[in-house]
């Protein structure tokens, strides 16, 4: 049976609510409206308004309330409509959720899960299209997840709910409508390791989120030219899976990072640096990166397309790293 990424997100929520009596979902329009990306549609009828809670447009307050409720023994799942609006809650996420355990000398924790949509590609312009997961990955105390597959959309959330510390989950808006078969053998996923989505011998593409599909498409095109590309789905953006980075570089000796975040000071800079720190001697060529152009996302389609990594530009960057540019 085919399911969509959106349905996987919903099934994940249902598993959490069914198995953890202290779990509840709250966010803007999650209940009556069913969520701005329709992830929680129907859940109000199943679980009632205590557990599927609509909040006012008060991001700082309801994210903070989620943190407090987690400190108080509940297991809140907080939905922020998109990462763009999570900036209003930045203080709560960074100054409270991420630091609480440390500040209290290990006495307190905030096991809250904060989900949000991220990414560009729908012509929503500069205030609705950004990717801030790499930014959050800068913050000690947070675990940052980027589900790119149906299985991760389905099983990362239940795993996150069992964590002792705050977890943020970034669902790319472009993935919600992706459909496919859910692998029946998978009943749980880890929140530690990167995954090899395609094996290859000549180059490793390190990517996550919507970048995974785009990189796989590029890899197919490159295969026809005799370039055998490995695609690594990072899955967990903090903490990064160093072992997986070493492992893939040892196989391919060349690296391209594909990141929908901006380049300067971003996750791609971290990844390239890590590869150099961890296994510089394994590299046959300078690592490269393809990121979103350093511009707020413009509205017109042709400019938005030009701003973002695309299969064609990924393939071109891959060829350059392999000396075939």
């Amino acid at each position: 049976m085919t399911v969509s990424y959106r349905e996987c997100c919903k099934l994940a929520l249902r598993q959490c609510l069914d198995q953890e009596p202290r779990a509840f979902l709250m966010g803007e329009d999650v209940a009556a409206y069913g969520g701005c990306y329709a992830v929680s549609k129907g859940l109000l009828d199943l679980y009632g308004p205590e557990r599927i809670r609509d909040t006012p447009l008060s991001e700082s307050a309801f994210v903070g309330v989620g943190i407090g409720a987690a400190m108080g023994g509940m297991r809140p799942i907080v939905e922020v409509m998109t990462c763009n609006f999570s900036l209003l809650a930045l203080d709560q996420i960074i100054n409270n959720a991420a630091t609480l355990r440390h500040m209290s000398g290990g006495q307190l924790g905030a096991p809250v899960v904060i989900r949000m949509a991220t990414g560009a590609g729908r012509q929503l312009a500069a205030q609705h299209s950004h990717s801030f997961e790499g930014w959050y990955a800068h913050i000690p105390g947070l675990r940052i997840l980027a589900p790119a597959t149906l299985e991760d959309a389905r099983f990362m959330l239940p795993a996150a709910l069992r964590e002792q510390d705050p977890v943020m989950i970034f669902e790319h808006i472009f993935l919600y409508n992706q459909e496919g078969e859910l692998d029946a053998k998978v009943t749980a996923v880890d929140l530690e390791r990167a995954a090899v989505r395609r094996r290859g011998a000549h180059l490793s593409i390190l990517t996550y989120g919507a970048g995974v599909q785009k990189s796989l498409t590029a890899a197919e095109a490159l295969a026809a030219e005799g370039l055998d590309v490995e695609v690594i789905d990072l899955r967990v953006l903090r903490p990064l899976d160093d072992a997986a980075l070493i492992d893939t570089v040892k196989r391919t000796h060349r690296v391209l990072v594909v990141d929908e975040g901006w380049r300067s000071g971003g996750l791609s800079a971290e990844l390239v640096t890590r590869v150099c720190e961890l296994c510089f001697d394994e590299l046959d060529a300078p690592p490269a990166r393809l990121c979103t152009a350093e511009v707020p996302i413009p509205y017109p389609k042709h400019l938005e397309d030009a701003a973002l990594p695309q299969p064609a530009t990924i393939a071109a960057a891959a060829r350059r790293v392999c000396g075939r540019g």
Partner: peptide
Amino acid sequence: GGRGGSMHVFDAKRRFYGGNAIVGG
């Protein structure tokens, strides 16, 4: 200049300061 679209209409000459799509922003 086409950069903003429906949610971000600006016109400095007419002191029309947008076009803000963050609620309350």
